[in-house]
Structure formats: structure tokens, C-alpha cells
Design a protein around this nucleic acid. Structure first.
Ligand SMILES: NC(=O)c1ccc[n+]([C@@H]2O[C@H](COP(=O)([O-])OP(=O)(O)OC[C@H]3O[C@@H](n4cnc5c(N)ncnc54)[C@H](O)[C@@H]3O)[C@@H](O)[C@H]2O)c1
Ligand SMILES: NC(=O)c1ccc[n+]([C@@H]2O[C@H](COP(=O)([O-])OP(=O)(O)OC[C@H]3O[C@@H](n4cnc5c(N)ncnc54)[C@H](O)[C@@H]3O)[C@@H](O)[C@H]2O)c1
Lengths: 214, 214
DNA sequence: CATCAATTGTTCCTATTTTCACAATCTTTG
DNA sequence: CAAAGATTGTGAAAATAGGAACAATTGATG
């Protein structure tokens, strides 16, 4: 059943395309060429055309892409036409920021519940999201939950993930600086800010060295 | 001067190696094989050996790697033996979380100043870091600052980056969901949590489909 | 409605990254 | 200290990703 396999690198760019396109549509733009779009998202226009081509012919030669139509397509592909419910575990500094933000409007992803081990936090509400005690996680029906956001301390991440797994969750966005050991049918993505900053510093220092050698 | 060019992919893994190794040394482990290390960081052992090989022979055949020695090497390579000072721009929900966290101990990166446009925030202190009014950014000597963390709203990110640039900053860790347009000698890394979550959801849904087709 | 300009979809080429496979060599042990 | 076992470093192969070039085709224009 064809639809040639979509490369990982392509899949990871789709959410960026989706959001940038959303902004274009909001601003009333009805068409865009791959090269103009490339300037916005800072990706080569050939790469963009090739990415879209995995899904068939989405554009029109000599014209470009209809923003509305393309947005619609990406919305479906990214499952943004139905609400994706996620939970958040660990309402500390970072968890609180995420709850307050809660993926803003125009984005069909919502944090529907939060959990923390601290009884003082349980019962409260942040950004309209209620905080529950960690113990309740196992007792809740989580069959409609797509993923869990993990914002607990590093030493607690593995156990928190396991508790979430036991309640049926199969996807994690892990903000803690440890790699989780989970079964292969569980999907984990890492957001690792310390690593990002150190990589930035490395590249800055090394590009400076290169210049000095010239 | 030899030291064969280090691939980008390798460079981006170094901070993870560094931190994982730090944990091993903290726990008193004195040696580790690439395959055991691979299990910890969840990277193929061949990839790890090849990564290290770009820097010369860091291990010993039949023995593995001396954790202390390797950590030392990575510390130098990542410039973690000297303090890297960074500033933070935009003390909102996310900025506050980052200030409170401030890259914890054992990490020679420090947020030394914060800036916000809101006069009510200026003058205060969060996590020991003083908040200044945005206007002061241009007046400050930032020659010792390595990079700026950008946690301002999307619509303000470009102008905030330009102000930081004007004061001499050449590296950015951008948490806002826009691609910055900056000169080529400026280095920008993006941390885009919305994109990460959407990618996670995409992969979750698609791996389920694949299973159904089997 | 014929011509010109624009722009896609795709083929082919190149660069980068990952993985395999194994000789070289060190460590450990009896 | 010789033999056995472990593990690195790396050359070569495979897989993935990125980019140049261009025929095909559509839209715009006079
Ligand atoms: N704050 C940041 O800016 C930042 C930056 C980079 C990485 N991180 C990482 O994100 C994670 C959270 O950071 P933070 O600053 O929000 O920490 P924090 O200490 O402020 O918050 C952690 C929260 O998790 C709760 N918790 C602890 N154990 C738990 C468990 N077993 N189950 C459920 N909840 C539990 C605590 O009660 C607390 O509310 C850490 O792993 C940290 O390394 C944070
Ligand atoms: N909070 C989150 O969890 C989260 C998650 C994903 C992405 N983000 C992104 O991070 C950025 C910050 O998010 P937030 O939730 O902290 O927003 P926020 O509104 O809470 O904070 C923004 C802060 O920036 C300040 N500011 C505005 N304009 C400024 C300027 N020109 N110069 C300096 N300071 C200025 C504001 O006064 C405010 O304090 C946003 O771009 C957001 O999209 C946040």
C-alpha cells in the first residue's frame, strides 16, 4: 500500500512546517513557493519539495503551494485535527512553566492532568490544569492519553516513567537528563537543555578557533 | 594541524557523554567499556568508539576507557574547565524556571544576568540572578558573555536577538518558536518543545499503523 | 491564445552518518 | 609468563540525508 516510507528527518520537520504555515494562513497569505517558504523555515527549498513529495503532489507547478490546503494536509498527517491529550508528571519549576504555557491556542495538544509526589501541590490548579497526587496515576484510566511529559528530577525519572507505563502510556517527552530504559514499543524523545547549551558553546569556541587558523 | 575534522553529529553527542561520564565517576566507577557505556547513553558502541577516535586513542584495548581520564578530556574539549557565562533574556514562565535551575552544580555554565522589558521584574532576583531592564543590555560590557538564552515571546525574539548582538553576543539558545534571521557568524540553536511533542505524537501514531499492517 | 515566467516533482549525484567486521593489542589468570 | 579473553581503533560497506539540475507543467500576460 505504497505511500513510500517517510524518512525520519522529513517527519521531524513536519511540525515546523505546520506551525510556520499556520502563521502564514493567519496573516492571510494564500500561496507560497518552496523557495519563499524555505527562507522562512531556513531549510533548502529542494528539501522542502522533496519532503512534501513523499506524500504525493501537494503543490502546483508554476504556482507553488496553496497554504490553506497544505496546512489542512499537515494537520491531518500530524493528527492535529483531533485533540491529543497528554499528562505532565512533576510540577516543579519547569513543569509549572509548561502548565502555564500549555501549548497555546491553534494547537490541538493539551495537558489534561498533572501529577506530583508532593501532597502540598496536589489538589491545586495551574493554568487550568488540576494537579493530582502521584498515587492516583495508577488508578486513572489513561487509555485516551497519548503521551506523558516528564519533568521530575533525574533520579525519579525512571520510576515515574514506569508508573506511567503501567497505566498504559506509550510515549514520553523526557526533560530530565537521563536516558530511560523502557520496552521497545515505548517511544521516548528527549529535550535536553543542558546538552543543547554545551553543544552551542562547543560550536562557538571551535568556529572561533577555525577563524584564527586562517 | 591534524585532529581530523570532528563530524557535527559527533560533536552533538559529546555533552551527553560528558554528563553520563560525570555520573559514573561520581559513583566511583573507574573504567568502562564502549559497550557498557553504550547501554547507558543508548548509543551503539561502535558509534561511541568512532566518536572518541576523532580525538585520538583515548581508550586501551582489552581494557576500555578510564572514566576519570575520559571525563578530563571531555571537560577540556567542551570548555567546561573554565566558566562559561551566559545571559537570559525574557523572565517569564520559562525564563524563571531556567533561572531557578541555573544548570546545577558540576556544570561550568552559569546564567550571570537576566533581562526583561517589564519594569516590574527589573531589580528583582531569581535563583540568585539579578534581573535588569532590557535597555541596560546595550550599555553593558558583554565581551565576556558566551551566549544568550532567549525566552521571550515569539514576536519579540528577533528584536531581542538583535539587541543582544549589538552588545557583542554571537551565540543564542532560542526557545521561541521562530527562526531568527541573523548574520552567518552568529550561531543559533533551537529548543522547540512544541515541535518535539508533535513529532512524538506523529511517531506514536505511525508506529501503531505499521503494526496494524502486519 | 501564444509566449513567457515561475515553480514543482523528481532523477541523479554528493556528503554525512551509522554499522559491520576484524586485526591489533592490552589485561587477566592460572 | 603463556594462553585465553576482552575490547579498542579503523577501513570498508551500507544507510540516510541533502542538494544541484532540469524536464514538465501550470499560471500570467499582452
Ligand atoms: N528547570 C529547568 O529549567 C530545567 C532545565 C533543564 C533540565 N531540567 C530538568 O527537568 C527536570 C525538572 O526540573 P525542575 O527544575 O522543574 O525540578 P524541580 O525540583 O523544581 O521539580 C521537580 C518536581 O517533581 C516532583 N517529583 C519528585 N519526584 C517525583 C515522583 N517520583 N513522581 C512525581 N513527581 C515527583 C517534585 O515534587 C517537584 O515538584 C529535572 O530533571 C531537571 O534536570 C530542568
Ligand atoms: N513556558 C513554556 O513552557 C514554553 C514552552 C514552549 C515554548 N515556549 C516559548 O518560550 C518563550 C517564552 O515563554 P514563556 O511562557 O516564558 O512566556 P512569558 O510570556 O511567560 O514570558 C515572556 C517574558 O519576556 C518578556 N519580554 C517580552 N518582550 C521582551 C523584550 N522585547 N525584551 C525582553 N523581554 C521581553 C516579558 O516581559 C515576559 O516576562 C515563548 O516564545 C514561548 O513560545 C515556552
Amino acid at each position: 500500500m505504497a505511500t513510500q516510507r517517510v524518512p525520519q528527518a522529513t517527519a521531524e520537520r513536519l511540525p515546523l512546517y505546520y506551525r510556520s504555515l499556520q502563521r502564514l494562513v493567519d496573516n492571510g497569505k494564500t500561496r507560497i513557493s518552496s523557495s519563499d517558504f524555505g527562507k522562512i523555515v531556513q531549510i533548502d527549498s529542494t528539501t522542502i519539495r522533496k519532503d512534501f513529495s513523499y506524500f504525493g503532489a501537494l503543490g502546483r507547478k508554476g504556482y507553488g503551494y496553496n497554504t490553506q490546503h497544505l496546512l489542512e494536509f499537515l494537520r491531518k498527517t500530524l493528527y492535529q485535527d483531533e485533540l491529543s491529550k497528554v499528562i505532565l508528571i512533576g510540577v516543579g519549576h519547569l513543569g509549572t512553566a509548561l502548565l502555564n504555557h500549555n501549548f497555546e491556542r491553534n494547537n490541538n495538544t493539551r495537558i489534561v492532568r498533572a501529577y506530583d509526589i508532593n501532597p502540598e501541590k496536589a489538589g491545586k490548579e495551574i493554568g487550568g490544569t488540576k494537579i493530582h497526587l502521584m498515587d492516583e496515576l495508577a488508578k486513572t484510566d489513561n487509555s485516551d492519553i497519548t503521551a506523558a511529559i516528564l519533568t521530575v528530577p533525574a533520579e525519579r525519572a525512571q520510576e515515574a516513567a514506569e508508573q506511567a507505563m503501567a497505566s498504559g502510556i506509550r510515549g514520553f517527552l523526557n526533560f530530565s537528563p537521563v536516558r530511560l530504559t523502557l520496552p521497545p514499543d515505548v517511544y521516548v524523545r528527549h529535550v535536553d537543555m543542558t546538552v543543547e547549551l554545551q553543544a552551542l558553546i562547543y560550536f562557538l569556541n571551535h568556529s572561533m578557533e577555525e577563524k584564527q587558523n586562517k
